[in-house]
Every structure is written in C-alpha cells, then in structure tokens.
Design a protein around this nucleic acid. Sequence first.
DNA 1: ATCGATGCAAAGCGTTTGCAGGGGT
DNA 2: ACCCCTGCAAACGCTTTGCATCGAT
Lengths: 155, 155
Amino acid sequence: MIRNQKKHPIADPSPQRLREALEKGGCRFTRQRVAVYQYLASVESHPTAEEVYAAIRPEMPRISLATVYKALDALVVCNLANKLTFSDGPARYDCHDEAHYHLRCVKTGKVCDLPTPFDPDLIDKLDPKLVKSLGERGFHVTGYRLEVLGHFEKT
Amino acid sequence: MIRNQKKHPIADPSPQRLREALEKGGCRFTRQRVAVYQYLASVESHPTAEEVYAAIRPEMPRISLATVYKALDALVVCNLANKLTFSDGPARYDCHDEAHYHLRCVKTGKVCDLPTPFDPDLIDKLDPKLVKSLGERGFHVTGYRLEVLGHFEKT
DNA sequence: ATCGATGCAAAGCGTTTGCAGGGGT
DNA sequence: ACCCCTGCAAACGCTTTGCATCGAT
C-alpha cells in the first residue's frame, strides 16, 4: 500500500493557507510566491515556468524567471504543487488537490488531466510484492505517475 | 486496446538486419549507425548519448557526439530503439523489445527499470472506455508510461 | 539582526543546427 | 551524380547558479 500519495490539500488560493504551508515547509512567505501560487491555482492548464512568468509579469514587472523557477520549486517542496516531468520539453506544474492521470500529446507536449479515477493502489495491483521488496532495499515508495501518450489524428 | 505499443522486432545486432530496417525507414546504412546500434544491443543498461559516444570513440575516434545523436534518432525513427526521456538528466536509449516500468528517485532523479512485467492493456483495465472516447475526440492513443516514485530512506 | 529570497546576468547541460566536405546508393 | 550523412563548432532551450541587495522573521 502506497502511503502519502501526493495530495494537495490546499488548492485554496488564499494567502493565509499558502503562508501556513510554506512555513511548515521551512519556506518564507513572499509576494512572488503568492503570485505564482495564485496563478497556478487559477488555471486549468498545467503551465510551464515560462507561461507562469509571462502571466505574472503584467502585475509584477520586476519578477525574474529565475524567481519563478525558485517559487515553483518551493511550492513543490511544500507539497503545494506537482512538477510534471517525464516528457520532452519544459516541466509543467499544477496545484490541484486530487491526484490524477495525465494525457500528453507527443507532438505538442501539451498535457491535460484525464477523468479516469485515480487508483492509489495501482502499483500493488500490478505487482503486489514490489513496494515491499523495494522497501527492503531501502527505497520508500511515495507514489506513482502515469501518462497516456498519443496525438491528434490530423498533423 | 492500445496498438503499436512500442515493440522492437529487431534486437538482433547483425548489420544485415540493421540495413534492412534502416532502408525501410528511409535511412542510409553507415558505419556510424552500425557502431551505435551494436553498442546499444550489447548492453543491459539504458545508456545516454554521451555514454554511447564514450563507448564508441575508442574504435571510431573521429565520430562526433552530434552524429551519435543523429544515429540514435535514426534508430528511433526506424523503430529499432526507444528513447526514454526523464525530466532530470539526459535521454536514455534502449533497443530491447520489452517495454517496462521505471523507478525514479525524487531526490536524485536517478531512474532504473522495474522487474514488474509490462501490461500493454493497463489503460483499458483502468478505464475501459477511455481509449475509445479519446479516439472519438480525435486523439489517438499510442501508449503509456508509468513511473514509480520515491526515495531512499536516508538522504 | 539574521538569513533566506530576489533580480540580474552568466553559466550550465543536453541537444540541435548550419555548413562544408565525405560517403552511400 | 545525387543527396544524405558526417564532423565540427556554434547556437539553442530550459534550468540553475553566483552574487549583491532586499526583505521576512
């Protein structure tokens, strides 16, 4: 049984909750992180760091792309966001509260969520001994990630 | 049912078969591609382009890294190899015929194969209507990827 | 006051591309 | 002879880093 499958209890974009979660993770509460987090919470898509940067700049013109990367890292560390990283192209981020599967277009790199219910025990169903045997070797399984790959018929 | 889940019918490193597969894919048969392919077929690991380059250089000192990348691309195009891309770190290649799952350490980014048998029909088992309903929307599913995530107990 | 975070620029890494010359068909 | 492939170097895209300053605690 996989415990601690990534969940994101705080999809609420309110700064108070963000503050608590950042502090719990040992990170400071800053304007830049509020902006990044609120943007992430406001969109359905899974934006890249560049897209977050472009979206935030109009209201915060002096923010740097490096800061966006660092803010996104902080959110991931504090378990406020996911970094989706097993594809070509730039990493994408989300801060939704339910674990879910993703659909990725191998031609454009775009990602969207699948409606399929997430099964926290899928790994055990695939291989009932796996998590235990990895544990015996010192590897602690915290979750898994599944992407369905394909493309739209027309080029 | 997912069709064309990556299979590699030609794991045989013989140049004759390589030649046929390259020609079928519209690619020329060259010494460099033979070297890359034979090295890939000779190892258990999933080497990076750099590793292939380093392994081949002693016997072919004038080969360039760019050529290794292009040769690997040609093998992938001709369905002779797989390209495995993970977020952190370089792409890795294999030319074995079995798809498999991966284990990734969220702290170090290291990836290794899992012994768990690959189930080509997993998506249908998770959600029997998904592939069909995506097809009706013009999305052609070609495969899926699954990574088990975690870390070693001690940092 | 402390020490992490910011913003800028520059470097880093893996990969791709432009081009002149070489090699497969 | 054709045109793809090679090898070199330079550029590329994404991300991280070094450093002086700023700002949250």
